[in-house]
Amino acid sequence: MSRTKNAVWLLLILPGTLFVILFMLVPLFSLCLTSFFPDQSFSLSSYFRLFGDAYFQQTFMRSIRLSLLSTLVCALLGYPTAYYISKFSRHKGMMMAFAVFPMFTSPVVRSFSWMVILGKRGIVNNFLVWSGLFAKPQDLLYNEFSMTVGFVQLFLPQMILSLIGVMDNIPDDLTLAAGNLGATKLGSFFHVVFPLSISGLVTGSVLVFTGCMTAYTTPQLLGGTDTRVLSTMVYQYAMSLRDWTQASVVAVVMIVATMVISSVFNSVSRKINPMA
């Protein structure tokens, strides 16, 4: 019985597996190969060249920095929102719809909206000048600030959704039990709710971080010429400079960096809640 059952399962997962192998693993593998064989023979020269390049170093650090910053802001904004929606909101469905609403529009449209909002004559600058905080409009666009704003708006729903998913599974009895055992509201939050929701925070952070690292439209439209990130750099190498080797080197670096930082997130969560 188990043999036929296994055969059925294998058949069922076959299309998905083939799809992933053909369109994801094979190109990824050839990408890696390209980066290690710049002139038909194995060499790490492309990597040395890249890491020795000050412009790349800056770009690499900017990518990591902006992604981490956006992840942090998403966590700080998303956690209380998710906590409220999951535990206190009376209109949960509606609140969830609002939270994910930004996902219904394309990143291009959203970036254009930010251009309107943050531009020299945008409402933010108008307000700053009108209120007397600044004498003249500030540069809010085409810099790291506008990129972070774009990232946060783009990925906040992912953070909120993964947190709600986990928080919904924390039974109310646990917080009542903590209170019954003498914990204040704050105490039961820090001793029970927070450690139990850490897995959602990590999943959300990984989604936001990888999203920020790989996003292209948002940094392209909201960033300036002197605020390139890795994804725009790949595009530049591949499309403007026609240097596919260098483009794949940057791509491999992106993948490795993303994986390393994601696994750091995971190990932190395991320290806090070993049962997650």
Binding site: D173, L174, L176, N180, T184
Partner: peptide, 18 residues
Amino acid sequence: LHKRNFGFVFQSYALFPH
């Protein structure tokens, strides 16, 4: 509730899983 010093045994036990 946290100032009552009452014990409570829940139907679900409500043990802290972590």
